[in-house]
Design a protein around this nucleic acid. Structure first.
Lengths: 192, 192
DNA sequence: AATTACCTACCTATTAGTAGGATGGCATTC
DNA sequence: GAATGCCATCCTACTAATAGGTAGGTAATT
């Protein structure tokens, strides 16, 4: 319960970004949701760009440590991928966070302040590195059979995840997400 | 050269939507690009929602007739898919239209006026139907071997395309698009 | 005494949108 | 064929609301 105001601001801002992107929310929206005056938000985050930068920093950091923790907790690469995809599936199904913050911002890339854009790029690279390493470990253990280099297979899987989010959102059907993603995972695990 | 003002407005608005989405542009931006006063844009399109609605109508209609023309011109289903993917690949490579208007708006779905959202949904459905029918024709001719029902394979391909657009934009590397999409197409065409 | 967190009150620029006037082409009427 | 009225296009000039951001003050901690 004892969560600081700046955390509350970041939480609200994050969900607003997920809903409508960088240009889809204002300090007034945050003000309403948090129950604090606009000027007070500026006290914590002088500019909108800085706010989103911190928000992204937190998001990317959380993703990194989340995936790292997953790696320590679950050793089977196949189960690791399942957990990653399952995470998003449940977020989308219960509508708690029906879109990746970075995927959202990626679509607005051309209009983002450079510092924000850099964070988005970093997330995409981090994610690709993680998926790639999981795929490589899985191949080594004979769990996956890839039809392309692991680097490329990683990009394909990531694109499928983001594309599936888009389709699910566009059609207003959360279950579309797993209909797209599950076969992609199954394909990797199919024994040759 | 003799293109009407309202066409110019729609052209400019379309490229602005591609760049930054619904909330990423204003009548002032259009005004600057077209060389006409803001009020004159309101003469052609009373509200922003109506403007984007007409824009989307045009876009979706163009897509439908484009795909239909493709079907009449190219009979081989494999070549049809290649042409569809190649279209986007060249758009992204030469940066002429580095994103699908509907994919862009799909990410903002939650904040869109309902009429606009309906058009976006329609495009996703149309596209799925087209891809599905091409896949079915290809299977019948022994060109494709699907590992999931054609409906699902269509959704997968569409998600890959949109996800690939996102990744290419996020990373600032246009060639990422075909690195993701080509193997997906190859996979469908792989003989059993 | 200084700092943190919040406030009221304000600022300027921009947003979508409106009111009403000027221009100019086109069809109807005389 | 000239005068008529009409209507589409575009304009200047405005509006109210909202955008991101600032100035300066208060009250409680440190």
């Amino acid at each position: 319960m004892n969560v600081s105001t700046s955390e509350k601001i970041l939480d609200v801002a994050e969900s607003l970004v997920v809903a409508g992107g960088y240009n889809g929310f204002s300090y007034a929206d945050i003000s309403d949701a948090v129950g604090i005056r606009k000027a007070s938000i500026h006290h914590h985050f002088p500019t909108k760009a800085e706010l989103v930068e911190v928000l992204l920093d937190r998001y990317v950091q959380r993703a990194v440590s989340g995936l790292k923790a997953l790696g320590e907790q679950v050793t089977n690469p196949a189960k690791q991928l399942e957990a990653y995809l399952g995470y998003w599936q449940s977020c989308i199904l219960d509508a708690s966070q029906p879109f990746c913050v970075c995927a959202m911002l990626a679509s607005e890339m051309q209009m983002l302040p450079e510092e924000v854009a850099a964070h988005v790029r970093a997330h995409f690279r981090n994610l690709a590195i993680w998926v790639r390493s999981v795929l490589e470990a899985g191949v080594e253990q004979g769990l996956f059979s890839l039809s392309a280099p692991p680097e490329q297979e990683a990009e394909i899987l990531i694109a499928s995840v983001h594309g599936a989010m888009l389709s699910a959102r566009a059609l207003g059907k959360p279950d579309v997400f797993s209909a797209i993603v599950s076969p992609q995972l199954a394909r990797l695990m199919t024994p040759r």
